[in-house]
Design a binder for these strands. Structure first.
Length: 456
RNA sequence: GUGAUUGUAGCUCAGUUGGUUAGAGCGUCGGAUUGUGGUUCCGAAGGUCGCCGGUUCGAACCCGGUCUUUCACCCCA
């Protein structure tokens, strides 16, 4: 017996229904991106490993899928390392390619490599799968699609504003209620500076990121475990306790950060962005959230995260500004900002709330029943006429039993069935059956088109 | 990477203290109905009980390993 087939852990097949739904999401997102002047690019599924390594921190390196070299790769590896079972160092010798982990780093590579062909500010979008060797769980897959929009080569905060507008528009079109959480890495740096631990910004932000999840006490405990002084932790308390609306939070921050130049700059940036989004009158609420840190090390300014209000699933969109991403690849002083829509989580949210418009899943609208060669030949011609009138039409390929063909139409949710038998052939007419109403009439081709078009 | 959890027909699940031939519903296919779907009735196909090993006279059931599912941690879309 054949072995039971399966697919790798954390990956999925998509049925026609699922694909139609996913394409609806992708098309919506693409449409909004285009509306703001972004152009598509694609990059290879695999990159050279040295492009990817070291960009996502130690954790990220572990989550990279690595591709074995071709040929007799083991013979070229260091025998001593092999013998010692030193996987970490052996992989460097037997693998030089890896699957992309996100779209931002390949984009940075792309920009540096093609810098002379690009016009800056360069606005691109990119919708492709990425892979992470994570352990799968709710809303977390090993293969998933990201929909990135970035603008690179511009410092202007209008870009941040534009990205928030895009988020607002995409989720308005998809009919998902969301909140945009906004923070600024400069504010976080300022906080670290003020409490006298300027080098511990990452530890501090990772800890306060958990405030909502584990509570104040455990956050303080974690900070203590990481070796922060009691003095620093107590200085941090008023910042963790900040509340009120965006502008009162920011005013309070201004006084706390009065002696931090970078911190004040961050507050200022937040104010500018918020003033713009406020005057634009977006549907989506925008909240300043100091607990928002995000793991990626390369953000330097704004940090965004979008959460669905009606489903518990983590963030469905995230991003921020990175001042020196291309610097690693040798192109200095180019600032970029971008966000990534997590298509698979959006898909999960849409499924859970059943937010698809009814016409999204509609496939074939008219099926021609096949009674045999002569009838099918006639149907073939009329089917083409139908298609030219914008009706999605198919002909049943075999001269099967009527029951079977009707059943097929029923299962596929096809609204109209065209029946052409001997009597229709002789009178040069077709019978159109409305599967919803169960009624049918025999008509001329012109009238049949009328009936179908007005019935849809 | 750490700690749990799941696996029996295409799907959802039963399956007694370990005991002959592993069941149901839904779905699929065929028929009742040779030009009319959904409803109904009748019938059929479909299982190495995730995989490998162990205990036992005997394992779907007990034990170990492995893979898979789901969840938490870490991290993240």
């Amino acid at each position: 017996m054949a072995q039971k087939p399966s697919i790798p852990k954390g990956t999925r097949d998509f049925s026609p229904l699922e694909m139609v739904r996913r394409n609806y999401i992708f098309d919506t997102i693409k449409g909004v991106f285009r509306m703001y002047g972004y152009m598509p690019i694609e990059t290879p599924a695999m990159e050279n490993l040295d492009t990817l390594l070291g960009k996502y921190g130690e954790e990220g390196d572990k989550l990279l899928f690595k591709i074995l070299n071709s040929g007799d790769f083991l013979s070229k590896a260091d025998k001593a390392l092999l013998e010692a079972g030193d996987s970490g160092r052996v992989t460097g010798q037997i693998s030089e390619k890896g699957l992309r982990y996100d779209l931002t780093v390949p984009f940075a590579r792309f920009v540096v490599q093609h810098q002379n062909d690009l016009t800056f500010p360069f606005k691109r979008y990119q919708i492709q799968p990425v892979w992470r060797a994570d352990r799968p769980q709710k809303g977390r897959y090993r293969e998933f699609f990201q929909c990135d929009v970035d603008v690179i080569g511009s410092d202007g905060l209008l870009n941040e504003v534009e990205l928030i507008q895009i988020v607002d528009e995409v989720y308005r079109q998809l009919n998902i209620r969301v909140v945009v959480k906004l923070n600024n890495r400069k504010v976080l740096a300022g906080i670290a500076e003020i409490i006298g631990e300027p080098n511990r910004m990452v530890d501090i932000t990772v800890a306060i990121d958990k405030l909502e999840k584990i509570g104040l006490q455990k956050v303080n405990q974690e900070l203590e475990d990481k070796g922060l002084s009691n003095e620093a932790i107590s200085k941090l308390q008023p910042i963790l306790a900040l509340s009120g609306d965006n502008f009162s939070k920011l005013n309070a921050l201004s006084s706390v950060l009065a002696y931090s130049e970078v911190g004040l700059k961050g507050v200022d940036e937040l104010k500018i962005v918020l003033n713009h989004t406020k005057s634009l009158g977006l549907n989506t609420p925008v909240e300043v959230d100091l607990t928002l840190a995000r793991g990626l090390n390369y953000y330097t300014g704004a940090i965004f995260e979008v959460k669905a209000l009606d489903v518990e699933i983590g963030s469905i969109t995230g991003g921020g500004r990175y001042d020196d991403l291309t610097g690693i690849f040798g192109l200095k002083n180019v600032s970029g900002v971008g966000i990534s829509f997590g298509a698979d989580r959006i898909f999960d949210v849409m499924n859970q709330l059943d937010l698809y418009p009814t016409d999204v899943t509609a496939a074939t609208q008219l099926l021609f029943v096949n009674f045999g060669e002569k009838e099918a030949a006639f149907a073939l011609k009329i089917a083409n006429t139908m298609r030219k009138n914008g009706i999605r039409t198919e002909i049943y390929p075999d001269g099967a039993k009527m029951k079977k063909q009707m059943n097929y139409a029923d299962k596929k949710g096809i609204r109209f069935v065209a029946i052409i038998g001997e009597s229709e052939l002789n009178s040069n007419q077709i019978t159109i059956k409305d599967m919803n109403a169960g009624t049918q009439e025999t008509l001329s081709v012109e009238n049949a088109i009328q009936t179908v078009v007005s019935g849809l």
